[in-house]
Design a protein around this nucleic acid. Structure first.
Lengths: 344, 344
DNA sequence: CGTCTTTACTTAATCGTTTAAGCGAAAACA
DNA sequence: TGTTTTCGCTTAAACGATTAAGTAAAGACG
């Protein structure tokens, strides 16, 4: 297919030396290779003239390193993950690494297959936003000793590297914020999932209410399945605003829940914050543009991503052996959607 | 780093045959290799037992094919591109290809560097959402005969494969739609760019107005630079709604312009569609969630992406030599933001 | 029974690098 | 002058697959 691919041996032939010498010069190992000044210059000149581009496949095969990392996320078309992907990509490039991204759709089997595809491609390591039931994936990576960092979500039962948000604390602050602004009946919308970060978010919310002497009603907590979100979130909201136990505020625990929930809010003509005040997790332009800008717990995606890459890089250098675990605080961005409650 | 990597020769040693035989069996070439039944079974058994995963680097190096394609887009954190990326990823995987995504930030130099990184990684081909001044990139790929497909944007002066939206037509329809709903003074917001798709979108808009006997005023067309979008779009909108030549409707020619523009609309408390009706390009959840759902020209991202991958695949098989060029129609999704004008 | 074909394998080159080891020749040292 | 060191380069193995070509043994054929 390609015609003018130029290899080390092409240069070697033109200069009249061995490929070894060319390799030494072009990879900056002149010292070790003890190459003559003139011949080095000549090699460099010819390489430049032919626009020599080393074949990274060959290099990787030989060195046992590809300078590639695999990034497994739920869905690149979700802006939260897209932003993560962007930061990971930029940070990795700074270290000379290329990222291969795969979307798992929160499906452990897909994630497993993805992992295998990437392993076959000999990635040097992984950054993973894990999905439910991905314990097997984590165990497998540990067993084969492939470095990886869990991002945004982790498994407390495994001793792994990870970088996550302080989810309990974030929920707690979201709750306190709403309470301090006069809301008393606060709902919480979460995915139906046994993942740690989900239960942490729920825990923080409940603690906030309890700390402020509010009796948490069980049916304020709504859990919807990821796959049937569009229908289930409608039922959940219907129940939350029904006469029986109407809430005056609602915390969405992810971006996807917020988007789907707010769509239904519009449909039902529920007013924010008059009917229901809102604080959400995740972040996206949607929150700015909503008629009533949405308050949210800002997760410092750039910091999370950068830290994850840094940890992975240190692993790839084989530096430490202790697990590196970072929990980063989210920050409340208070907007109109949770403004002080008017007395009705 | 990795301990238990198992290679062809490991299997060969255990079974007591040569690596060649193992290769034949495991790559389903038993016929050509004329391998015995029993030994084939044994090889397969051991391979399974050891969980053998072929080293794609070695395979690629030998075969001169990596089954990898490079996708260059402006920015993965922009939902329009994120959706493209997702579709390209899925469709490619169906063909057994892995995608490496890179963000160019609409910067030709970054795109060039990205291209080189990916070439070094021996991608088999490219799908490119090109940026301004990327003619050099296109010429280079043609010269080295690396297959590529331009997506969403193309250069009319080059004879390349491409898949694009019918931009002139889409703008035209957006314009007609607004006119038919009673708007007469229609503005158009575009990036300051000489790229073909931009001028096509402008052309369609102007034609629509002319066809309906509306005298197009020059200062209805606003062009803002990609880099200084936040400030320039404010000035542009200020001018558009100013007393001198206030518009009653506005077409945003990209997602990014719409988001930034609408933010400023909120700030200035401009009402949609009472003050200004809106039709936008691009698509995202934002448009659904805005207090007044935004009408937009729906570009069939899934079709665009799938077609681009299909074309690239046919190139990789070396099928046709004629350039394959597809122009796909966008579809108006009419919502509240451009509803029939009330007489004031 | 000798020759030809088929079967079931092996050998070895190859892809494009890296890099340890080797090897003359010149320079330094004793 | 003889020995060691340094210099400047080459040789060749290795990474892990693929695959054309070779080969030995068994079976088919006349």
């Amino acid at each position: 297919m390609r015609s003018d691919k130029v290899s080390l041996s092409d240069i070697a032939r033109m200069v009249g030396v061995s490929t070894a010498l060319v390799s030494y010069v072009l990879s900056g190992k002149e010292k070790e290779g003890r190459v003559g000044q003139e011949i080095a210059a000549k090699i460099r000149a010819i390489a430049k003239e032919l626009n020599y581009q080393p074949n990274l496949l060959a290099k990787s095969l030989r060195k046992g390193q590809t300078f590639t990392i695999g990034l497994i996320i739920a869905d690149i078309s979700n802006p939260f993950f897209a932003n993560i992907a962007r930061e990971v990509e930029d940070e990795s490039r700074r270290h000379g690494y290329t990222v291969i991204i795969g979307s798992s759709d929160e499906d452990a089997d897909k994630a497993w297959d993805l992992m295998n595809v990437l392993i076959n491609r000999q990635v040097d390591g992984f950054i993973i936003v894990s999905s439910e039931h991905s314990e097997r994936l984590v165990e497998h990576l540990q067993r084969i000793r492939l470095p990886f960092v869990l991002l945004d979500r982790h498994f407390p039962q495994f001793d792994t590297d990870f970088v996550v948000t302080n989810n309990a604390r974030a929920s707690y602050e979201a709750g306190i914020h709403l309470i301090e602004n006069g809301y008393r009946r606060i709902g919480f919308m979460a995915y139906q999932s046994a993942m740690f970060h989900v239960s942490e978010r729920i825990r923080g919310y409940q603690e906030a209410l309890r700390d402020r002497g509010i009796q948490v009603e069980a049916n304020w907590l709504k859990r919807v399945s990821f796959l049937a979100i569009e229908t289930e979130i409608r039922t959940a909201i219907d129940e939350l605003v029904s006469a029986e136990s109407p809430v005056d505020a609602l915390i969405f625990s992810t971006y996807g829940l917020a988007v789907n929930g707010l769509k239904y809010f519009n449909e039902r003509h529920l007013r924010v914050p008059e009917d229901v005040a809102i604080v959400s997790f995740g972040q996206a332009e949607v929150f700015d543009l909503y008629y009533c800008p949405i308050s949210y717990m800002r997760q410092p995606i750039d910091v999370l991503a950068k830290k994850a890459v840094d940890i992975l890089m240190s692993r790839l250098k084989g530096e430490s052996s202790e697990s590196q675990q970072y929990t980063i605080e989210a920050q409340l961005v208070a907007r109109e959607s949770s403004r002080k409650r008017m007395i009705r």
